[in-house]
């Protein structure tokens, strides 16, 4: 499905051969420098990957404030643990994995703690606005498109986490099945099956509003 608007470095990490992709800076050099405490290198890493982390966190939580909190936590963890990054998987994969795990922990914590402030629906609408029109996602203007996106995001949150994570990673973040499998430590067949079930469940939840996407 649709590829998110991710950074050139991420495209590079996934081995995608896009003719117009920029040649990224040497990632291993950046990581080595960040590991040695180089703040500029860490900032470059942050700038390259912040949207990847934020986007996934937002899709997993449905809330921009939570996404912001999570992005902050993920990069703090990266800062602490970059020394133990072995390079056996791509940095991007590692980062996705940290984000998924932190999102899972975060949502679990949130379930135990009552909502402290009101919902951020207004802010969600702002985040949900397109940041760049692509041919496949020509933005529809106005409240209807915005409401439709809100419905989808709400439905995503109703999916159990075991279905939501693979669905978001594959369908929205554009990762291949085998990449999702590696990230979630699941067999590829299980990932495919969960995405299939997730799609059916999502449709079930959206059925009363299906005219929005006709």
């Amino acid at each position: 499905m649709q590829q998110s608007d991710l950074t050139p470095m991420l495209h590079y990490n996934r081995g995608m051969n896009e003719p117009d992709a920029e040649v990224p800076p040497a990632e291993d050099t950046l990581i080595s420098r960040a590991r040695a405490g180089d703040r500029d290198a860490f900032e470059q890493i942050f700038n390259s990957y912040r949207n990847q982390v934020y986007s996934l966190a937002y899709r997993m939580t449905g809330n921009p404030t939570d996404a912001e909190d999570l992005t902050q936590e993920v990069f703090m963890q990266v800062m602490r643990k970059i020394g133990s990054f072995q390079g056996r998987s791509s940095f991007s994969t590692w980062l996705y994995r940290v984000t998924v795990n932190r999102s899972r922990d975060y949502m679990r914590s949130r379930k135990r703690i009552p909502e402290l402030l009101s919902d951020d629906h207004e802010a969600v609408e702002r985040v949900g606005e397109p940041v760049g029109a692509t041919p496949a996602r020509a933005p529809e203007s106005g409240a209807i498109a915005s409401e439709a996106r809100r419905l989808v995001q709400d439905a995503l949150l109703e999916l159990p986490e075991t279905l939501r994570a693979p669905l978001v990673l594959h369908e929205l973040e554009g990762l291949e099945y085998r990449e999702v499998a590696r990230m979630l430590r699941l067999p590829v067949g299980t990932v495919k099956s969960r995405i299939f079930r997730g799609r059916l469940k999502l449709a079930e939840l959206l059925e009363p509003h299906k005219e929005q996407w006709r």
Binding site: M1, Q2, S4, D5, E43, F46, N47, R50, N51, Y54, S55, Y58, R59, P64, A67, E68, T71, Q72, F75, R126, V127, G128, E129, P130, V131, G132, T134, A136, R137, P139, E140, A145, A148, R149, L151, V152, Q153, A155, E171, L172, F196, R199, L200, L202, A203, E204, L206, E207, K210, Q212, W213
Partner: peptide, 26 residues
Amino acid sequence: RLALSGAALGSLAPVEMPPDTSARVF
């Protein structure tokens, strides 16, 4: 049902971190 969920997911816009949020988080 799969077509409906595909269309619904396809209607979601890409998400980017707002610049002011980015500076604050960093």
